[in-house]
């Protein structure tokens, strides 16, 4: 599904290159649950941003679903967001002026899903996440864990084939964090959604099937976990 070849990312300042990523080459297959780990500043988030096409690598090629997406125009990229990629953020990034329902609905509107289909999908998601009673609340009326659930529901609404999550539990208490990770695991196992998450927590990484350890921009370890 994802092919990274010799990805490099550096910033030049005063003629000196500051490398964030070096020689990253890896393949992620459909249905994998990958955790990217490493110390602060190692380049985890940059790697995830490159995977999510939010940043472009300075060098190297990136193939997404057999298509070279290393340098893609905005329109094509957004097409991919609409149909294949769901994002989950550490700070949830819900739209404050929209209710829970509207937040989940928004990607469907951009994807131009019909009204009836939209309603049924949202109802389904709300039901699944036990949020039916909260559908008319605004994000600031919810707890962090609930907000992140909405964030995930929003990412799932467009039925993506891959979810990119940047420290999805970073702002959450451990009980809530566990709930989210279990949800990810379930989505990965039952729905076959590919998940790539950036995390600090060894424990969270254990929910996945594979761990990429990064330090100083270089992939140090690539560990495949056996199912628990």
């Amino acid at each position: 599904m994802i092919e990274l070849k010799n990805i490099e990312k550096y910033y030049s300042s005063k003629g000196i290159k500051h490398y964030v990523l070096r020689h990253v080459t890896t393949t992620i297959k459909q249905g994998e649950f990958v955790s990217i780990m490493g110390p602060s500043g190692a380049g985890k988030s940059t790697l995830l941003n490159i995977l999510g096409m939010l940043e472009e690598p300075t060098y190297g090629t990136y193939e997404f679903m057999e298509e070279d997406v290393t340098r893609l125009n905005e329109r094509k990229r957004i097409e991919l967001y609409r149909n294949h990629i769901g994002f989950v953020f550490q700070a949830y990034h819900l739209i404050d002026e929209m209710t829970v329902y509207e937040n989940i609905e928004a990607p469907l509107l951009y994807k131009k899903v019909g009204g009836a289909e939209r309603a049924s999908r949202i109802a389904d998601l709300l039901d699944r996440f036990n949020m039916v009673a909260k559908k008319d609340l605004f994000p600031n009326q919810l707890s962090g864990g609930q907000q992140q659930l909405v964030g995930i529901a929003r990412a799932l609404a467009a039925q993506p084939s891959i979810i990119l999550a940047d420290e999805p539990t970073g702002n959450l208490q451990s009980a809530q964090a566990e709930e989210i990770m279990q949800l990810f695991q379930k989505l990965n196992k039952e729905d076959g959604i590919t998940i790539i998450q950036v995390t600090h927590s060894e424990k969270n990484a254990q929910y996945g099937s594979r761990i990429l350890n990064i330090a100083d921009g270089v992939v140090k370890d690539d560990i495949t976990l056996t199912a628990v």
Binding site: I78, Y81, Y110
Partner: peptide, 16 residues
């Protein structure tokens, strides 16, 4: 700006 960012990753075109 945050709203713009979110909407874009949710699949909104700039024109929209």
């Amino acid at each position: 700006a945050k709203e713009v960012g979110i909407k874009k990753v949710m699949g909104a075109y700039r024109l929209q």
